[in-house]
Amino acid sequence: MCSNNFADRQLDHPATTLLIGLGNPILGDDGIGWRVIEAVQSQITDPAVTVRRFSLGGLSLMEQMIGYQRVILVDSIQTSGGSCGEVMWFPLAALPNPSTGHSTAAHDTSLQTALEVGRNLGANLPEHITIVAIEAERVFDFSDELSPAVAAAIPEAVETVLKLLAEPVAAVF
């Protein structure tokens, strides 16, 4: 049968850290994850870091993480009382996992549940997943432009990503 096995992905690359820009690049502020990655990419020369941009969630996002020790994920967020353009970072565990109750996501499960699925199935998944989130304002209107306050947050988000990358893999949390 095919040698192409999902659990063998760790053999395909030497990198230990995956830096992801997440979002939809043409959906207004939802594209901030991509824009931060574009801004930071040229400053990353470490071959241990793989830099990618995705418009994915749940199982598909989990599958991209197989084989890495650490993931840093840059995305937009909308929080209660958050101010547009605010940059925050936190472990994935700090996010609520609403899908523990249901798998109600329209067409996928949450990343946390997907990671649990992958680990249960023996996939080699990272222990350390850090989110760098930027408070978004407009995420319902197609546009390849960011709100001014969100665009202004790119330097701080870049700095945050570089600081996180400079830390030893296990030291951040």
Binding site: N24, G58, I77, L95, P96, P98, S99, I131, V139
Partner: peptide, 11 residues
């Protein structure tokens, strides 16, 4: 799915 990219990605 098109509307749920932003965290936390749930409907």
């Amino acid at each position: 799915g098109c509307a749920t990219h932003s965290l936390p990605g749930q409907m």
